[in-house]
Design a protein around this nucleic acid. Structure first.
Length: 322
DNA sequence: CGGATTCCGTACGATGCTGT
DNA sequence: ACAGCATCGTACGGAATCCG
């Protein structure tokens, strides 16, 4: 399997433009009249070939895109295809059929896909819950940065749950866009980037509130979130439907950032409740693997020494429970 | 010396060819 | 029709090189 994560280059997320702003007819006439530049379709031109019969996998891909709000090619390929080229070919057909919209940021960056209205109609006809689907514009660049990380986490979790030996399954995955839609106008103060519930054979379900951190906020602001979660936990209150026993997971770009945030969370008394890890560690060890450390442990590790990330969110795995 | 240019490596998706 | 492999076209970053 290809790696899920690729480095975000500085130019990425700039100059996002929708692909299908020009009708197909225009493209056909220019190909006859003007001297042909290339036999190959440009990435930002709409594919002319349409999908024939929709397969189960096509529907699964459409549903993935609709649920995630926007997804990049490598995620779709990792979850549903054995070959990236097969994936991109199939995606082009789905775009050609108007089921998906393709957004090209740069030629050396992966395409983003969003679900079209037509794609949503097809899914709803297949009895996919309408309220779980998102269509419309490509989100802002900042939202996309979040979404990219969240999608990676979601995909890695899906892949980990496919491992029969683990016996785990994701019984709930609600992203922040789901939570905001669910709560309507009275959105609570605390909206995690995802609410996740994982069920493992013979074990009580594990509830997680995932925070995707991009170092945009000061540790003090994260500390405030720690304060809110601690109050909820001490009141044994559920969090977005997760029963008492849930735990916030803080995923950061670097260990240095984790250290900075860990101190603020420990100061709020949430150092044991909150666990943290880096994107790289979660990618390397898996979201259900021994990839986490408590914020108390991270803050307590002397400078110059790397914190030990050995905890797992699953009670039966190495380092789990606690 | 410092900016411009060139070259190389890498990344991405598109597609030709071939086998199922 | 689809999938897999190999290759191609386009673009970027960075190092090396050129040149005033």
């Amino acid at each position: 399997m290809q790696p899920l994560r690729r480095g975000l280059r500085p130019h990425a997320l700039l100059d996002l433009r929708p692909l299908d702003s020009e009708p197909l007819a225009v493209m056909e006439t220019t190909m006859e009249d003007a001297p042909r530049k290339s036999a190959r379709r440009r990435r930002d031109e709409k594919p002319s070939r349409q999908v024939g019969r929709l397969t189960d996998r096509d529907l699964a891909v459409l549903e993935l895109v609709g649920r995630c709000r926007a997804v990049q090619t490598p995620i779709i390929a990792a979850l549903h295809f054995s070959e990236p080229s097969t994936c991109s070919r199939r995606l082009a057909r789905l775009v050609g059929a108007g089921m998906l919209k393709c957004h090209v940021e740069h030629l050396n960056a992966a395409n983003w896909y969003t679900l079209s209205e037509r794609g949503a109609e097809v899914l709803i006809a297949e009895e996919v819950a309408e309220e779980s689907l998102f269509t419309g514009r490509l989100p802002s660049a900042e939202t996309l940065q979040h979404l990219e990380r969240l999608n990676e986490f979601r995909a890695a979790l899906t892949l980990a749950c496919r491992d029969e030996r683990l016996g785990a399954s994701t019984s709930c995955f609600l992203a922040d866009h789901d939570l905001r839609r669910l709560s309507g106008s009275n959105t609570p103060d605390l909206v995690p980037d995802a609410i996740v519930q994982i069920t493992q054979r013979g074990q009580p379900p594990v509830g997680l509130a995932v925070e995707i951190d991009l170092s945009h906020y000061s540790p003090r602001i994260v500390g405030k979130k720690g304060h809110v979660t601690l109050a909820l936990q001490q009141a044994r209150a559920p969090l977005w439907g997760l029963p008492h026993g849930w735990r916030p997971l803080f995923l950061a770009p670097s260990v240095a950032r984790l250290r900075g945030v860990a101190r603020a969370l420990v100061d709020e008394g949430a150092g044991d409740l909150w666990w943290g890890s880096s994107f790289d560690l979660v990618a390397a060890r898996g979201p259900l693997g021994p990839a986490y450390a408590s914020m108390t442990d991270i803050a307590g590790t002397p400078r110059g020494e790397p914190p030990i990330f050995a905890r797992s969110v699953l009670p039966t795995a190495a380092g789990g429970g606690a």
